[in-house]
Write a protein that binds this DNA or RNA. Structure first.
Lengths: 209, 209
DNA sequence: GTTTTTGAACTGACTGGTCAGTGCAAAAAT
DNA sequence: ATTTTTGCACTGACCAGTCAGTTCAAAAAC
């Protein structure tokens, strides 16, 4: 018989197990890389048996892919939210960029391991999950590109900026500054880091200030 | 006899073999990661026997570490050269930064695989070669920090900029923009990319332009 | 004649993935 | 109300294959 013990989209127990596996995998892979991390390690850290990993995910690669989707989904939602709230409050496009910079920093602060792992894999070639990686990357970068384009359309940004390259550069600015912050100056506050990046974003570097 | 022909370190033949191994390892590891790359693969791509790898390097890790040192050494030299030439020509510190941005782009354009590999490893923790990684990172970033500090001292940059964070952000800007360029818009010219980054660096984004 | 390279065989530890079986809470049957 | 059945979620020993690193005699390069 169809037991139907938990009709609403998968049992709670299973979802909890998957979450534990995500959390175990993300830190281990961030530290060691995908290949150097064994399924046994992931299972052990998650506190489940190895078979459970394969009960919940078709393979180690699939676990990783779903982890990527899950994580970037959170980031993209956060960036959109930041941009939309700024718009709602009548802020300029620079304000929107600034809010997104902060949202990015908050995300990296909350999920540093995921960020490390993502950066480490993003530009590799010939990997099984490359298409997944590109899709989720595009989702996130598109939010930044959108704000830049709107800014150009509204005359707030120079029409001569290269939207794609500028978006990539902004993402890189935040990414590397934040990872450096985490790795080498963890005592600094998020506001400190945000202030430094705002200054750079708004071109307030040159001049006596 | 230790003939005059090879003062710096070892025979020419041996050095050539090591160079071939570097080149083979750098592309393979950039594509697949360190752990997923086998010594047999490296030897095969380099066109030497496996025994030769172990005759020239104590282990796979040591080969990788020396590769890191070698590569970042080239980058650091190139950055210094760019900064010094700008100074020699009487350029401003912004000019020096701009020249270093270009030098970074040229480097990434010439050694994309090395750059990928380096970025993928830089923020990992608990790895055998972590101290090597940090040392060489610091050598490179210090060049940027130095120019920023001189700019502050000379009153060209605001005294309120955070040198460390700004340097990291600038490096990130170039790194990510360049890797994106390589990966997703390889048809663009170096000058194009450089122009986009210059604009951002000099705060010529806002405004009708 | 010394240094460097070759190449193939070998070892021993490790790994992704499998699978027969267990535990258990809810459903069905009595 | 009690017993029986169902099937989901999980378990962990096991397997077949892989890989870093070793060894070494012989050849090649210098």
């Amino acid at each position: 018989m169809e037991s139907s013990s938990a009709r609403s989209g998968g049992s709670t127990r299973r979802e909890a197990t998957r979450q534990k596996l995500y959390e175990a995998a993300v830190t281990l892979i961030a530290e060691q890389g995908f290949s150097a991390t064994t399924v046994d390690e992931i299972a052990e850290r998650a506190g489940v048996a190895k078979g459970t990993v394969y009960y919940n995910f078709a393979s180690k690669s699939v676990l990783f892919e779903e982890l990527l989707r899950h994580g970037v989904g959170l980031l993209t939602a956060s960036l959109k939210e930041a941009a939309e709230e700024t718009a709602r409050e009548g802020g300029s496009k620079v304000d929107a960029l600034d809010a997104m910079v902060r949202a990015g920093l908050v995300f990296i602060d909350r999920y540093p391991a995921f960020t490390q792992l993502y950066v480490a894999e993003l530009w590799r070639t010939n990997r099984a999950w490359q298409s997944t990686l590109m899709v989720v990357r595009q989702e996130a970068v598109a939010v930044v590109e959108g704000v830049l384009r709107e800014g150009v359309a509204a005359g707030e940004f120079s029409a001569e900026i290269d939207v794609q390259l500028t978006a990539a550069a902004l993402v890189g600015m935040v990414l590397v500054a934040a990872l450096d912050w985490q790795s080498f100056q963890p005592e600094r506050s998020l506001d400190d880091v945000h202030a430094a990046l705002s200054r750079l974003l708004q071109g307030r570097v040159s001049g006596k200030g």
